[in-house]
Design a protein around this nucleic acid. Structure first.
Lengths: 172, 172
DNA sequence: AGAAGGTTATTCGGCAGCGAAATATTCGTC
DNA sequence: GACGAATATTTCGCTGCCGAATAACCTTCT
């Protein structure tokens, strides 16, 4: 079977002077592969987002708004946490996106310190359009796997995510 | 088996109004899992990098310098391409890192438009230290998989990376 | 040889995001 | 019910990065 970048990477480093300690080939290769696949998804998403005329951070904000328990609505603070962006950063995003009419801010109902952010019809439309393009690109990659292989992949990945999520919940 | 975030995500969206088109549960879950694992690796790397007293972009630059065919040396343009950063951005990084003594710039030998960037002994030392911590965190996650499972995972991931790399090489 | 065109790195102006401080509102307690 | 602590958001100054323009250099063609 042909070599991929991860194979080349591992070969290049094995016994090379740059590293003073050894490393596990399989772990290193797996890490590189996960990274490369992720970056590919990120790139195709970027292209999809650009095609519908959104900036990256605008799509990300709409996306964060949609993947919530309460899709389409959130407070700035929640968005900040879920996007891994500072509160100040969210304020900036909301300012520009509200101006463009893709979401609107409303004063919190019972707690007036809060602000309710809601996607507009137009914001939702653009996000859906980008999601559709994005999904096609992902489906495309997955065609190289059989249904059983995809199931196996998910089973193994899930073992890892369960562990990671446990670590996040406790230690952090 | 317990549910992970990807399971919850898929359940939440199935037949929800936010999406107008359906999506493949397994593909969506796989994408989310890859993303979450990648982000975990990124986070642990960030912690490792912070512990040795490097900023993210400083580690990334040293790393780009080390994973090359010619480890420890490169031109700014090459680094820009490999890091996915603009040439201007690289100039800024090199300015500050050279000032701190982690790398040095030298005029290109036969082509004097070029600049040769070289990591210093101290830069190499810090990068190695961060790499060591980073590697431990990755090994840690992988302990949830048996040796055979890791091999299977790599086989499936490699199917995808080979496809992705072919796409990158041709279409882009 | 000399001009034209391409390549490589840097400078410049602008923007998104961060951390800290400021502001506005609510909660807790006496 | 009033005062201080807690919470939610925004404002402010700064940093890192990008795209475009610039400077220095190489190559090719005539």
């Amino acid at each position: 079977m042909a070599k991929d970048e991860a194979d080349l990477h591992v070969e290049r480093w094995r016994d090379h002077w740059v590293l003073d300690k050894g490393f596990d080939d399989d772990v290193e290769a797996m890490t590189v592969r996960i990274g490369n696949i992720f970056k590919w998804f990120k790139l195709t998403t970027k292209e999809a987002v650009a095609r519908v005329g959104l900036q990256d951070f605008e799509y990300e904000t709409l996306h964060a708004l949609m993947i919530r328990d309460t899709p389409g609505r959130a407070s700035p603070g929640e968005l900040a946490q879920e996007m891994g962006v500072s509160n100040a950063g969210v304020t900036g995003r909301l300012d520009s996106m509200e101006k463009k009419g893709w979401l609107k801010r409303m004063p919190g109902a019972e707690d007036r310190r809060r602000v309710e952010v809601e996607a507009t019809r137009e914001g939702l439309r653009l996000w859906r359009e980008a999601m559709d393009l994005r999904g096609s690109a992902e489906d495309d990659v997955v065609t190289v796997l059989s249904k059983e292989e995809l199931a196996t992949l998910n089973r193994l990945l899930k073992k890892m995510t369960l562990y990671v999520e446990a670590r996040q919940a406790s230690g952090d």
